[in-house]
Amino acid sequence: MRADDTHLRDLMRAAQSGDGRAYGSLLTEAAPIIRRAVAGRWRGPDAEDIVQEVLLSVHGVRHTYDPARPFVPWLLAIVQYRVADAARRHARRAARETSECGFAHGLPEVAAPVAEEGPGDPQLLARALADLPEGQRRAVQLLKLEERSLKEAAAATGMSVGALKVAVHRGIKALRAKLTGREGEE
């Protein structure tokens, strides 16, 4: 592990100087270490998403690594915080979701709650979404439908966080205008 750490430390030092090849090797060699560490701490779904979040974090804070110190503890500290983040997100999401009715207790006697804005028309929504400009469509798709974070969406699209916020805002506004306009015609 020590020799491994020295190798990773050298790669990180080179990466901090802008050496892309060293950076690629570092991230490729670090990925299995991250994967193992995540597996040891996380029993929930989407473990590979956490691995990717750790890689994004490593990229974002690589300036905080001190080449005079071991690399792996620095990396594992980021893993630890990313897993804790994921656990918090998971708990929040679980708290928001209403529990499913188990078939063991029979079918529910009441109908599923209707959304406040009405059931809507999925096909109409899909058509309206397809009509949006590419940037807005991608932003709405990633942030609203897939519920990805701004940072994940930024990494996936190459857009800045600010541009994504603007695109999703305009996209939702355009969707609302289209849907309410058509509903008015019917």
Binding site: A15, Q16, S17, G18, D19, G20, Y23, G24, L27, T28, A31, E48, V51, Q52, L55, L56, H59, R62, H63, T64, Y65, D66, P67, A68, A155, A156, G158
Partner: peptide, 23 residues
Amino acid sequence: MRTEDLIARLVAQAAPVRVLPPP
């Protein structure tokens, strides 16, 4: 996105960084 693709994307942004001095 596959992890390999993410790594390729991050490597493309491997600009030099100003390393934080020790505390």
